[in-house]
């Protein structure tokens, strides 16, 4: 049945525009080792904590210089409803939602399976960082809105979407949520950060190589990707999401990929620390 609480549009099916010829994309430039991250806290003053994250777009042909855009709000810690059973520690609820205009394909307003998947991964990544038993009988909501996903606008539409961009989105979600939790003043053992490494080959003949922070649009073929949530000062990993196939079930290659994603985590963490330092400075200046 149609959703009566929203405006649904025409009864007939609508199709996204189909182009007569896909414009030739210029050859991808040499990718910098890591894309620059922009992070800012306090975008939603009425929430307990909030943060906004943007990734630089190295592909200069597109009109925008940034690709991934995430906004995160944290509400809580607050009392659980009376009906909820007793809990000795804080109850973490994560929501990840794509905006309808975030990706090439329009997302509906109801959460789909990939959004739930991202939410579960985000929860595991954060649960290891929060000191949960300091807030018994309370709950906290962490909401990440994906304003723009990590997809190439000019990629051909018939290209099968294997969901590799979800890895980059998840690592961004972890980093932005960590900054928002710190902004909300919830005690953590460390600031968690997310990072991605992938096994890619430029063309069919080339030997696959491991790259840090892969740009999905540029790489010809991704064999496997791995997203890690990492606590740098404690040297602990709270979540690993590995997807794809490794040639010849090589466990060494797997270890290498995780190590490479830790590099990405460390540099993302530096951005979080710097962003939080700026927030503290601003608070001290105003009071």
């Amino acid at each position: 049945m149609a959703d009566r609480r929203r405006i649904n549009g025409p009864i007939g099916a609508t199709t996204p525009p189909v182009y007569e010829a896909v414009p030739k994309r210029p050859a991808a430039k040499q990718q910098p080792a890591m894309r620059k991250i922009f992070l800012k806290t306090g975008v939603t003053p009425s929430a307990s904590g909030s943060a906004y994250l943007e990734l630089e777009n190295p592909n200069q042909t597109s009109p925008q210089k940034t690709s991934l855009k995430l906004a995160c709000t944290v509400h809580g810690p607050r009392a659980l409803p009376r009906s909820a059973p007793f809990s000795p520690h804080i109850i973490l609820t994560t929501h990840v939602k794509y905006a309808p205009f975030a990706t090439r394909k329009r997302h509906g307003y109801l959460r789909d399976s990939s959004e739930r998947d991202l939410g579960v991964h985000l929860e595991t990544a954060l649960r290891g960082a929060i000191i949960a038993d300091r807030w018994p009988k309370s709950g906290v909501d962490i909401i990440v809105t994906i304003i723009e996903g990590d997809q190439d606008r000019d990629a051909p539409h018939n290209e099968d979407d294997q969901g590799w961009d979800m890895m980059n989105v998840l690592s961004g979600c972890i980093t932005v949520a960590s900054a928002a939790i710190a902004d909300a003043g919830i005690d953590c053992v460390d600031t968690v950060a997310g990072g991605v490494a992938a096994l890619v080959s430029r063309d069919d003949a080339a030997q696959p190589v491991i790259v840090v922070d892969p740009v999905v649009a540029e790489n010809q073929k991704i064999h496997a990707a791995c997203c890690v949530a990492y606590l740098p000062t404690r040297d602990e990993v709270t979540n690993v999401w590995f997807k794809g196939q490794l040639p010849g079930a090589d466990i060494l290659l797997y270890n290498k990929m995780v190590e490479k994603s830790l590099i990405a985590c460390r540099s993302a963490n530096r951005v979080v620390i710097q962003g939080l330092n700026e927030t503290v400075k601003n608070v001290q200046n105003t009071t």
Binding site: T44, S46, A47, T73, T93, H95, Y109
Partner: peptide, 17 residues
């Protein structure tokens, strides 16, 4: 087809789900 979404945690009383 205009739609307005408030359930993005933009204020404490607008939570998703």
């Amino acid at each position: 087809v205009p739609n307005i979404e408030l359930a993005t945690g933009c204020a404490p009383n607008f939570l998703p789900g």
